[in-house]
């Protein structure tokens, strides 16, 4: 589904990632573990087209290295950035819908996707009409996941979603990811985290990123 081939990533001439060679299959759930500053966010941003890339990045076999950033989500990529990064003036539901409107999905598809988001994240229904700027930090993470689900039918990239979540909320977030697996078994999910213990329960495969290089974790989660 997602493949890095000899990928080097630069941010303004500064090399951040070196020689990535990683292949992630459809329907895999992958944990990308690394300390602060290891390059997790940069890895995800490179897939979105926000960085300079040497080498190749492929989605479903298609080389997207030179594809415009604005076209990539339309391939079925959903990205929930590190902080919630919601549009605070829009309501929760408007935030979730916007990617579908941008991609000009037909109304039926938009409705079906929205329905899917609410099945994965039922608690968002009650706050649908609240301004996104007014929801709590933890709820905001759920909204950001919902927004990413709108287009993320093939690849979902969640950047440190558990960061700063209270244990009860982290639990609910994990359960939502579990429901997503039932609703949408095909989607590839990449979750980054600095604390590997948090992702043990649902990631089958763990990649470790250190000083700009990614390696397979030696001990696979049971």
């Amino acid at each position: 589904m997602l493949e890095f081939r000899n990928t080097d990533v630069h941010i303004g001439n500064v090399p951040i990632l070196r020689g990535l060679n990683v292949k992630i299959a459809p329907s895999e759930t992958v944990a990308l573990i690394g300390r602060n500053g290891a390059g997790k966010t940069t890895t995800l941003r490179s897939v979105m087209g926000f960085t300079d890339v040497k080498g190749q990045i492929l989605i479903g076999g298609e080389d997207i290295t030179r594809m415009r950033a604005s076209r990539r989500p339309g391939l079925g990529i959903g990205y929930a950035p590190e902080d919630r990064r919601l549009f605070s003036g829009f309501t929760v539901e408007e935030n979730i819908r916007l990617p579908g409107e941008v991609a000009k999905l037909d109304p039926d598809t938009q409705a079906a996707r929205l329905d899917k988001v609410y099945r994965v994240l039922p608690e968002l229904r009650e706050m649908a009409d609240r301004p996104a700027g007014a929801v709590s930090g933890g709820q905001g993470k759920m909204v950001a996941l919902g927004r990413a689900l709108m287009l993320g039918t093939r690849l979902l990239m969640l950047d440190e979603p558990f960061q700063g979540l209270a244990p009860a909320l982290a639990q609910r977030y994990g359960e939502a990811l579990g429901r997503l697996r039932e609703v949408d078994p095909e989607v590839t999910v990449i979750v980054t985290e600095s604390n590997p213990a948090l992702l043990k329960s649902f990631a089958r495969r763990t990649l470790v990123i250190e000083r700009g290089e990614i390696a397979e974790a030696e001990h696979q989660a049971a």
Binding site: F50, A69, L86, F87, G89, F90, E94, L98
Partner: peptide, 19 residues
């Protein structure tokens, strides 16, 4: 809405496919 979204957060806007 696209203008509002880009005003608030350029990268978040780009990450949902806004040109």
């Amino acid at each position: 809405k696209l203008i509002t979204a880009v005003t608030e957060d350029r990268e978040a806007a780009r990450s949902i496919g806004i040109d």
